[in-house]
Design a protein around this nucleic acid. Structure first.
Lengths: 242, 242
DNA sequence: CGTCTCGTTGACATAATTCAACATTTGTGG
DNA sequence: CCACAAATGTTGAATTATGTCAACGAGACG
């Protein structure tokens, strides 16, 4: 049934906490399957409930909220190590959809086992809460981007954060990282029109700060980018992996 | 030391789950104090850590994120029943500040006891996670507001959600609810300028949908408001209270 | 009475959207 | 193998939503 947790390639990444032997044993039992899904396919659908929880093992996804008039807001990009579906499990109904942008592999867990986790593995439950809190923190920053940053600042911010995250899971190095999204996806994440996103990317390219072409992102001047983005340049906090 | 959990006025509100006797007993021990704070005072400061967790007992607050250039984004309004400070406790550093808009009373808990909660009260830990997930869900919707809704849609959405929440905790009735914020606060929450927020409020007022004057909000046509806001009009989900 | 803070309104500036056209690539069916 | 359609990225021009500046009124308060 796919990757054994003991051999999980993610665990070694510096983004993640070490796992104790005991935790590892528990995860082995907690993981009940693996979901491989094609690019473009929907993993979870807004308004539905799901009996499954997932951790992204590989590939990129999008979490987005759809309005009644059809417009969509990308809430965040899902990277390897991200945990998905807690809302549906805990609250019953999902407030967003999740879609694969590249082929994805996700570790699957049973919603019913979640209670077992809370009951018998308080440390893992705590980690789950940690993740939820971290997520919320990031959403707060994203909110500040949409509400207070100009288009240039927003795009700079997004490229920076995306690179940081890719790099932290071992997908990026020396400023290079694969980023197989469409400009439309980024536009929907930043609340900008496609055209304006494109022009803003062109501006960042012409200033030699970063470029993003043919699915590859290259950051050439990360300090300047961080300055435009109005963020401190510091390593991402280490987080638990579930 | 202030209100006894057994007599907590919030518990009876329809927004919240029932509590078992056993949960109640635990909460009595979990609550270690009460914080009364003046309007305008800061409860938690971005970038710091805090040994305390809080549940808002009464009053209104703002949670906001400050950018390096001083602009601020209000992340959400804190209503009675909201839980504050999980991030600081769980992650170490806080990504936002919390400020009282009116005089507030908050029930205080010890960060150290949080672990005890996870260890011995998995049901309460689960509730905590429920709250974090619900919060995230709401932030996703807020993100969609800032990213995809026009100024008119945003203001309509905000007034609607604010009223719903006030009403659900017993502060609003028949379309009326107290809302002692400044227009600037709403503007900062919606990512709009003060002037434009004001003009948009005037438009909503002239269309007889809602008005907000002298700290009182009155919704006169909630269906029309919901239509503009692009949301389904449905009751807020019942949530656990901590 | 003067000085704040807050809400209100008009005039003007500008950032971002919309519309439109075109280039490139990719896949597809004839 | 070619012709063609469907995505995606790119660019210019016109339009519009929103922001900025400025002034004023009303109330709170020392």
């Amino acid at each position: 049934m796919g990757v054994d947790c003991r051999r999980c390639p993610l665990r070694k990444r510096r983004l993640f906490d070490e796992m104790t032997e005991e935790e590892l044993r528990f995860m082995l039992g907690f993981k009940t399957g693996e979901l491989s899904i094609a690019a473009g396919a929907t993993v979870l659908l807004q308004g539905t409930s799901s009996p499954q929880l997932f951790t992204v093992l590989s590939g990129l996804g999008l979490r987005y909220h759809t309005l009644e008039n059809g417009r969509r807001q990308v809430i965040n990009i899902l990277f390897p190590g991200d945990f998905v579906g807690l809302q549906a499990s805990v609250m019953g109904e999902l407030g967003h959809s999740v879609e694969a942008v590249t082929p994805m592999v996700l570790c699957a867990f049973q919603r019913n086992d979640l209670w077992r986790l809370f009951r018998h593995h308080p440390d893992r439950a705590y980690d789950l809460t940690w993740i939820a809190a971290a997520d919320r923190q990031f959403l707060g920053e994203t909110l500040a981007s949409l509400g207070q940053r100009s288009a240039l600042e927003r795009v700079a911010w997004a490229l920076l954060r995306i690179y940081q995250r890719l790099e932290a899971v071992g997908l990026g190095d020396k400023g290079f990282a694969p980023l197989p999204l469409r400009q439309q996806d980024l536009a929907d994440a930043l609340g900008l029109s496609l055209v304006h996103t494109n022009k803003t990317l062109a501006k960042i390219r012409s200033r030699q700060l970063a470029r993003w072409q043919d699915g590859e992102l290259y950051i050439s001047d990360i300090e300047a980018l961080a300055e435009i983005a109005l963020v401190e340049l510091e390593p991402l906090p280490v987080r638990p992996l579930i």
